Amino acid sequence: MQEKLERRSFIVSLLLVTLAFTLLLKPFFTPIFWACAIALIFFPVYRRLMRRFPNWRNLMALLTLLLCIVLVVIPVLFATSSFINEGVNLYQKAQSGQIDLSKPIEQVRQAFPGINALMERVGVDLDELKQRLLGGVMSAGSFLAKNALALGQNTLNFFLMLGLMLYLTFFLIRDGEKLVDLLIRALPLGDEREHLLLAKFAEVTRATIKGNLVVAVTQGTLGGLIFWILGIPAPLLWGVIMTMLSLLPAVGAALIWFPAALYLYAIGEPVKASVLMVYGFAVISLVDNILRPILVGRDTKLPDYIVLFSTIGGLMMFGISGFAIGPLLAALFMAFWEIFMREFINSPKESSA
């Protein structure tokens, strides 16, 4: 009886300490998550290096981390900085009256009068829609300007989080296998289930982040490039926006390049508009239709609608990191239910047979 009481008291204490430690780490959730994700993605590189230089663990882990910084961190920082600068510049011009944001909308309405009749038929007031769009654009610009100022004021905090992420990534790359073995020993779920769940976690994380990012960056780069070739203002800004929108399956960059093509038709640039329209359907959209199922859907084994809803839900709940966390949670949810049905529902039937 005494032993049972001691065991229960210890379990309760263990749960309380674990909860307190989790709350302690809550402010660092984002850098911890991305450290785990980057370590998973770049671990195969480290393993290959270790096969050639088995006695240089620290150096090979550091070399892998430097490769990650060059291929991922620096380009992301550059693109983010350029996006914020161009977005704030555009917002300031619109606020000062140098750019009239309502003019393109009016030009499209005049060039395509059928849009007015179609919108009226479905009960949409175009003037109200225009005001909402303009209000949304100005709110987004104001939000971007305020956050750019806040980011400048919190530069130390930003680089602290970045440094913590890279610091943790180094140890996860170097000691990842030992930590996974320790986790399997510690979790009371059964080794076979734990191996399955951890494998699913690694598989979905790699597929989602690599797949979604490759598709998004490819679409954004192609979109920004054609905007630059056609002389559309702020191609880098629109390229980054297309990259961000491409993280959403079934939505993507068409939300930018299709209205841009309509606008080119409206201002009397049919050649440029046709080039952009053909390029959008034949090149930008084709990237999504070909690469996403190969890089994301095939590896995660998730239906497209699950990927879409989990991605949107993840973005709403976790911010930009949600494009990876959402599908990951969906995959773990399905993996847990697969284990449950296999072991707790199918097994009794099979044993009775």
Results as ranks from 00 to 15, higher is better:
residue 2 Q to T: 11
residue 8 R to W: 13
residue 12 V to N: 00
residue 16 L to H: 00
residue 19 L to G: 08
residue 19 L to V: 12
residue 20 A to I: 08
residue 25 L to C: 15
residue 30 T to Q: 14
residue 32 I to V: 15
residue 33 F to G: 11
residue 34 W to L: 15
residue 34 W to G: 14
residue 38 I to K: 15
residue 39 A to F: 14
residue 43 F to C: 13
residue 43 F to K: 15
residue 45 V to D: 12
residue 48 R to W: 15
residue 52 R to L: 15
residue 56 W to I: 09
residue 57 R to N: 12
residue 58 N to D: 09
residue 61 A to P: 00
residue 62 L to I: 04
residue 64 T to P: 00
residue 65 L to Q: 08
residue 68 C to H: 03
residue 68 C to T: 08
residue 69 I to M: 04
residue 71 L to H: 00
residue 83 F to R: 02
residue 87 G to W: 04
residue 87 G to K: 03
residue 87 G to L: 03
residue 97 G to K: 04
residue 98 Q to T: 04
residue 99 I to K: 07
residue 100 D to R: 06
residue 103 K to Q: 13
residue 105 I to R: 05
residue 106 E to P: 02
residue 111 A to F: 01
residue 114 G to E: 12
residue 117 A to K: 14
residue 123 G to H: 12
residue 125 D to I: 11
residue 126 L to V: 12
residue 129 L to S: 13
residue 133 L to Y: 11
residue 136 G to W: 05
residue 141 G to H: 07
residue 143 F to V: 13
residue 143 F to Q: 12
residue 146 K to V: 10
residue 147 N to Q: 13
residue 151 L to D: 10
residue 155 T to L: 13
residue 158 F to W: 07
residue 158 F to E: 01
residue 163 G to D: 03
residue 163 G to T: 05
residue 165 M to W: 00
residue 165 M to E: 13
residue 167 Y to S: 13
residue 171 F to T: 06
residue 173 I to Q: 09
residue 174 R to V: 10
residue 174 R to H: 05
residue 176 G to R: 09
residue 180 V to Q: 01
residue 183 L to E: 05
residue 184 I to F: 02
residue 184 I to G: 01
residue 185 R to P: 01
residue 185 R to L: 10
residue 192 E to A: 15
residue 192 E to G: 08
residue 193 R to E: 06
residue 199 A to W: 02
residue 203 E to D: 08
residue 204 V to G: 05
residue 207 A to K: 04
residue 208 T to E: 08
residue 209 I to S: 03
residue 211 G to S: 08
residue 213 L to T: 14
residue 214 V to C: 10
residue 214 V to F: 11
residue 218 T to L: 11
residue 228 W to D: 04
residue 230 L to S: 08
residue 233 P to W: 03
residue 235 P to M: 03
residue 239 G to A: 02
residue 240 V to G: 01
residue 241 I to T: 10
residue 249 P to K: 00
residue 249 P to R: 00
residue 257 W to L: 07
residue 260 A to P: 00
residue 262 L to N: 07
residue 263 Y to R: 04
residue 266 A to L: 00
residue 267 I to Q: 02
residue 269 E to I: 01
residue 274 S to I: 01
residue 275 V to Q: 03
residue 277 M to W: 07
residue 279 Y to A: 06
residue 280 G to N: 06
residue 280 G to P: 00
residue 284 I to E: 03
residue 285 S to Y: 06
residue 286 L to Q: 12
residue 289 N to Q: 08
residue 290 I to D: 04
residue 293 P to S: 10
residue 295 L to S: 04
residue 295 L to C: 04
residue 295 L to K: 01
residue 297 G to C: 00
residue 298 R to I: 01
residue 299 D to V: 05
residue 301 K to A: 14
residue 305 Y to K: 10
residue 306 I to S: 09
residue 312 I to E: 03
residue 313 G to K: 02
residue 314 G to C: 06
residue 315 L to V: 10
residue 317 M to L: 15
residue 319 G to L: 02
residue 322 G to A: 12
residue 322 G to K: 11
residue 323 F to C: 08
residue 324 A to I: 14
residue 324 A to K: 05
residue 325 I to H: 05
residue 327 P to D: 07
residue 330 A to Q: 09
residue 330 A to L: 10
residue 336 F to N: 09
residue 338 E to C: 04
residue 338 E to L: 11
residue 341 M to S: 12
residue 343 E to Q: 11
residue 346 N to L: 14
residue 347 S to H: 11
residue 348 P to L: 00
